[in-house]
Design a protein around this nucleic acid. Sequence first.
DNA 1: GAGTTTGAAACT
DNA 2: CAGTTTCAAACTC
Length: 441
Amino acid sequence: MSGDPLSHDFCSERSRDVLPGSVGTPVWTGPFLDVTWPGIIPCPHQPAISPHIFNCPCQSIQCQLASPHYILEASNQYHLLTGLLPGPPHTSYHSSVPASGLVNEPVPFGMMQDDLYNHVAMNYLHQQYGVTEVTSQIQPTPSQSDPSPSGGSPVNPRIKNSTSGRNTLDLEVCNSGGGEAAQVNPCEPGPNFLTMESAPAQIQGDDGLTQEKDLSIIETLRQSYQEAHPLYENMQPQTHPTRTVGNLCESKSRKPCRCTRSQCLKLYCECFANGLMCSSCDCSNCHNNADHGMKRHQAIKMCLGRNPNAFRHKIAGGKLGEVKGWHKKGCNCKRSGCLKNYCECYEANIMCTSSCKCIGCRNYDKGSQKGLKENIANMKDRSVSFMTPAVVDAVSGCLLAQAVEAEREAQSPAQAAHMVLVEFGHCLSQIVKAMFNDDTH
DNA sequence: GAGTTTGAAACT
DNA sequence: CAGTTTCAAACTC
């Protein structure tokens, strides 16, 4: 695929990041609960579940959360750290959560976020539906009745009214018979992407409307939680809708760190930076483990205080298995020419962009004459000299005139917007044409 | 495997 | 925000 890197490589990728929910953006297709309702874990008593899920080598937050031991420990530490739980958290493997009010404590990374998430979720459900308890199970789905056209893991949320007056929302993840581990293991970088486009189809069963509505409820819960805890997204390294399956379980294979002085509680440590606890590492004096939960919690808070995006992926855009994307912050390489693994862009197999402040960069598209970075920088320079106040005024005048015209013709708002945008496109093309005509003189 | 180089993170 | 220090990974020998 050839073409102007400005129009394709850069703009299209970047717009994908701006619009994470845009059509075609791959999102997690694994067990829905693990991502959108991470505190609700599958029941280990169900024989259909691969034991793999409880002993995943990737050690991602999702997998850590899937461990019964982890749940117990997280519950205990939650008490220890916040002291805000109105009652003892459930420690049953059904992971029920009590309905309660919002918790205003800043959410600690990894361990407690899901408890808090559940609290907010329960608060919402309690208010909206009178639900007082949530349970979840993974069950094998009889192949003949698999409601998922693509064989995914549909979620069947149902609100039950019990005779005891306790309303329960059951989230039932159906595991289609054949591929047990692949279906339930969040670490499997399976090839299936659930796009925003395909999401409704994936969850449609015999009561498609109901399920779609329930899915939106769950999304509302997520938003509700995010509103209550602005840090939530930062501490949810694996739940952003733009995350691919690859991102979900760390695109890199898990490498043991060898930290000696940081206690693995600074971003120097790759495990810590990836939101993972150290496991089978070669580090010394490691505190990035369950035994030092409090200290780890404090370190996480400190990192987030310095940089709220500290635990988010540095690489934006791109799809699993592709090389396109860009480093959100950009690199600062000086001596490597951005052609060694010292360079974060090069290491991520992506080209440097205008975000980078590197010197002597050679990590750009060899196919283009100047390279992406230079092209973008050039465009910026040109636009500075061409985007004079007079030009801006002229463009504004054109757009305004177009809006007035639309109003005069009694166009619909959508049509009016379309007319203005078309005019804006014309203006831009005129400006760009002028810029490059000037270059030839 | 020891020593060097490198650039991100942390600090001032 | 810029300069400096610390740190661990990448690299070289």
